[in-house]
Nucleic acid binder design. Structure first.
Length: 665
DNA sequence: GAGAGTTGAATTTTT
DNA sequence: TTCAACTCTC
């Protein structure tokens, strides 16, 4: 506690009513939340289990848990620290019956849902050129805005939206029959229930004495609603956020939820954390000046006790090729001059495709790097297969899972057979697994086919029954042996190396299952599959946590991280701000994105832009970002022949005018 | 079930 | 331009 500054202490100690902590970048907010949890336990005698601290990502939750554990020392108490979705799952698990779900319901990830939707879209409009993600996003948007299928207008202006509207209800119905939920349902379901059932609402309110919400500016409508409902009249809520770091509006985040707090909680107290412990004075000045161009409900200005530091370098390059070379060489040069590791450097990008050139430049120079994003563990086919088997064990109605594995490993059950199975299931109202053993299905296929499908269904049903009481890790091992999965991986892999990798993935999954089971909170197969799905093995990336490489990451993925030396590449119009944001007039969010990028830097910041860049294989001329003009000119050190961004733009405009005039005459 | 050919996307992405 | 994903065919 003595390590905290006065504002931080105030935020920790105040618990009498609703509190909003406006935590600027690098102001130590995780520490504040962690200290507050401990303060509530120690000084306010709140029951640890009745404290709910909610984050957005598993990573944030893990960090929070670790901080709290360090502060608590040897004491073994467990405040509830989880993501929004895990909180939703916790409620749904206990209340699933009220919402019409059966035991062991499945959680479908985005990929599963996309497949399901693609199917529904094909059925509605064969040969449509509307992309699945578009429809998926529209439906997701309705869900997190709490708009039910029957409230959606079918005659939407755009074809994509009206297709989404037509698919919305069937999509929800399909999930219901599969006894499955998607990620949005994990929030929406509990909200619906808490709204409709006062008794359930009371029960959950009684279980939560104090709520803390991290990254509050990222909450969407249904998440805010969940918080509001659970907090109830006693209003013991601490929301921590920064409206200037809201960069997820495009996926439903409502930075206005921050201002909304004042309306919904008139007694709201506001504490601003403005002391920054990360960056040099010049970097903060740049950040402050830039973000001052956005409208604000609460004014905020970062300051620090660090020195003023080096000026911000602005480098103009001719091509994007020059840009990557320049940055790569610069990193090598600096490392040589000042020592330190590669991990002290980060190249921040607006979009993923910018990364490719950097990868090449880094490889040419043997610069180790870590790329953000990338493939998830669960994208591997073999991992998906295994998870589907587990899902099916927990939830025999999970048709989606059954379709994936009915012929994996090969059981000579082809598409034609599956189609008959699906048709009969639709007619009879049975699940696919039940249909497989049903007379009506057998009459429609040849005896051999009927026997093959029947064998599989019988085996699965029996396995399920016999292993109901088996610890899931053991059941999984037996299952793999029964289906001869390792053999199949070997047979189908292109080479030995690939086979080894795939088998290792399965082995790793087994280890995860064992590890989750050992946590003692998740006992059933359904619990474990849910944990796997919501978890996404983010910890894998942490394996490389001590890997010494340059961070090559998007601005979005860099949020919450910090680096001594930051390069912001592509500081150009049409890239930052992005072209589509200019078109859609969402410049403010782009400005916040630039702000997030700038505030990642501790000691040095370099902004680069190119005069030309290839787009769709065509050379286009570029202008420096308008945000360059919004930075304090005195603190910029220009490198390259261009000395003034505004002047540069003027000349560009002048030439354009001349061209226009030429064309007119 | 593999290989060739075609088509489409290039803004951000966690759960 | 370039790559990935999907489709079609044998």
């Amino acid at each position: 506690m003595h390590k905290l500054n006065q504002r931080q202490r105030e935020a920790v100690r105040y618990h009498e009513g609703p509190l909003l902590v406006l935590a600027g970048a690098g102001s130590g907010k995780t520490g504040v939340i962690a200290h507050k949890i401990v303060h509530l336990i120690d000084a306010c005698e709140v029951e640890p289990a009745n404290i709910a601290a909610i984050t957005f990502t598993n990573k944030a939750a893990r960090e929070m848990r670790e901080r709290v554990r360090t502060l608590l020392g040897k004491r073994n108490v467990k405040p509830w620290i989880s993501t929004f979705h895990t909180l939703g799952l916790r409620i749904l698990r206990e209340e699933h019956e009220a919402l019409g779900y059966r035991r062991g319901f499945s959680i479908l990830d985005a990929g599963d849902c996309a497949g399901l939707l693609a199917d529904l879209m094909r059925r509605d409009s064969p040969g449509t050129d509307i992309a699945v993600p578009q429809v998926q996003q529209a439906i997701s948007a309705w869900k997190y805005a709490m708009v039910p299928p029957d409230a959606v207008a079918l005659d939407a202006p755009s074809p994509a939206e009206s297709l989404a509207a037509r698919c919305y209800a069937p999509y929800c119905d399909a999930l219901m029959t599969f006894n499955a939920v998607d990620f949005d349902d994990l929030i929406m379901g509990p909200v619906r229930l808490l709204r409709e059932d006062p008794e359930v609402l009371e029960r959950w309110r009684a279980r939560i004495d104090f709520m803390l919400v991290d990254e509050y500016q990222d909450t969407n409508l249904s998440q805010y609603e969940l918080v509001r409902l659970l907090v109830g009249e006693h209003q013991r809520l601490t929301a921590v956020g920064d409206d200037d770091q809201s960069i997820y509006a495009w996926r439903g985040a409502r930075p206005e939820n921050i201002a909304q707090l004042q309306t919904d909680f008139p007694r709201l107290k506001v504490v601003k954390l403005e002391q920054n412990y990360r960056s040099s004075g010049i970097i903060l000045k740049a950040a402050n000046t830039l973000i001052a161009n956005n409208p604000h409900v609460f004014e905020k200005k970062l300051w620090s006790e660090h020195g003023f530091g080096d000026k911000i370098r602005v480098v103009a390059l001719n091509t994007e090729h020059d840009e990557t070379e320049r940055i790569a060489n610069d990193i090598l040069h600096r490392k040589l001059m000042h020592g330190g590791g590669f991990a002290d450097f980060a190249v921040l990008l607006r979009s993923n495709h910018q990364a490719r050139l950097f990868e090449r430049a880094f490889r040419e120079r043997d610069i180790p790097y870590v790329l953000s994003g990338g493939r998830s563990f669960f994208d591997y086919a073999e991992v998906k297969d295994c998870v589907c088997y587990l899902r099916l064990l927990a939830n025999p109605d999970d048709n989606n899972a059954l379709l994936r594995i009915i012929n994996t490993p090969r059981r000579t059950i082809g598409t034609a057979t599956v189609k008959v199975l699906v048709d009969v299931a639709a007619e009879s109202g049975l699940s696919l697994l039940e249909t497989a053993l049903d007379e009506r299905f057998r009459l429609r296929v040849s005896p051999q086919v009927g026997r093959r499908v029947g064998e599989f269904a019988t085996w699965l049903t029996r396995f399920q029954r016999e292993h109901e009481a088996t610890p899931p890790p053991d059941a999984f091992a037996t299952l793999l042996a029964d289906i001869g999965y390792d053999d199949w991986l070997e047979q189908t892999a292109e080479n030995e190396k690939a086979a080894e990798r795939r088998k290792e993935n399965v082995a790793e999954l087994s280890r995860w299952i064992a590890r989750i089971y050992a946590r003692d909170e998740e006992r059933t197969t359904a619990d474990i599959v849910a944990a796997l799905t919501l978890f996404d093995i983010a910890d894998r990336q942490d394996d490389n946590a001590d890997f010494d490489g340059v961070a090559l990451t998007t601005l979005h993925a860099a949020k919450g991280l910090e680096y001594p030396h930051v390069y912001l590449a592509g500081f150009e119009e049409n890239l930052l701000p992005h072209r589509s944001s200019i078109e859609q007039d969402t410049i403010e969010e782009e400005r916040r994105l630039a702000y997030v990028g700038i505030t990642r830097a501790k000691r040095s910041l370099t902004l680069t832009f190119c005069r030309t860049r290839k787009r769709y294989g065509q050379l286009e001329s570029c202008e420096p970002s308008r945000f360059l003009d919004e930075l304090p000119a005195d603190e910029l050190a220009w490198d390259g022949r261009v000395t003034d961004a505004a002047a540069n733009r003027e000349t560009g405009r002048g030439t354009l005018d001349q061209l226009k005039r030429l064309l007119q005459t």
